[in-house]
């Protein structure tokens, strides 16, 4: 499929409108010197990823991303930034020096070339088929509690373990004086 064919489909324009700001926000996330801005760029990136999921017809997953990742995880990150008093505006303390950056850029570009080349090579440019029903939320819930019920329960236990672990790690020991740790 040629590029003009690809651009003639309206949903591909929607894809571009979502994907380009998403990538720009992701690049700003890893380069910005302000830590709070980095968390806010993560909001933009995650919102765009939710929009991509909506474009793919995965409604329930998209709204879960909005609720869990944007709603809870980003707030947790902002807490972490405030509590550890991450320095703001000083690039030298936030990132590694230039030599490391060049090596990291080479590694990530090589990774992108590898995955991207494999993807272009492996998949035909056949358009995605329209799903039989537009929203599959009902079917998703049914399959989550029948076929995938054991992994679902395992994830529940994992979340409980993470909750307990987080409390145990962040709790002050009884002998420690209040405010002495931070």
């Amino acid at each position: 499929m040629s590029l003009t064919d690809w651009l003639s489909t309206p949903e591909n324009w929607v894809f571009l409108v979502i994907a380009l700001p998403m990538l720009a926000a992701a690049v700003k996330l890893v380069t910005t010197t302000n830590v709070v801005h980095a968390a806010l760029y993560l909001v933009v990136t995650l919102a765009a990823s939710a929009a991509v999921l909506l474009l793919l017809g995965a409604e329930f997953v998209a709204w879960t991303v909005v609720l869990v990742s944007i709603g809870a995880v980003v707030v947790l990150f902002l807490f972490g930034i405030m509590i550890t008093r991450a320095p703001m505006g000083r690039e030298a303390t936030l990132s590694h020096p230039r030599s490391v950056k060049l090596a990291a850029a080479a590694v990530s570009f090589a990774l992108f070339a590898l995955i991207g080349g494999a993807a272009v090579d492996a998949f035909t440019s056949q358009p995605l088929t329209e799903p039989a029903d537009a929203t599959r939320t009902g079917a998703l819930g049914e399959v989550l509690f029948t076929r995938f019920v054991i992994p679902f329960e395992v994830v529940s236990v994992l979340l409980l373990a993470a909750l307990i672990g987080g409390i145990v790690l962040a709790r002050r020991d009884p002998g420690e004086t209040a405010g002495g740790g931070l």
Binding site: L23, K101, F112
Partner: peptide
């Protein structure tokens, strides 16, 4: 792939 590579770059370059 592009998002993942940007994430790898961030993991490798960030000190904080």
């Amino acid at each position: 792939a592009a998002l993942f590579s940007i994430g790898v770059y961030g993991v490798l370059t960030r000190r904080n």
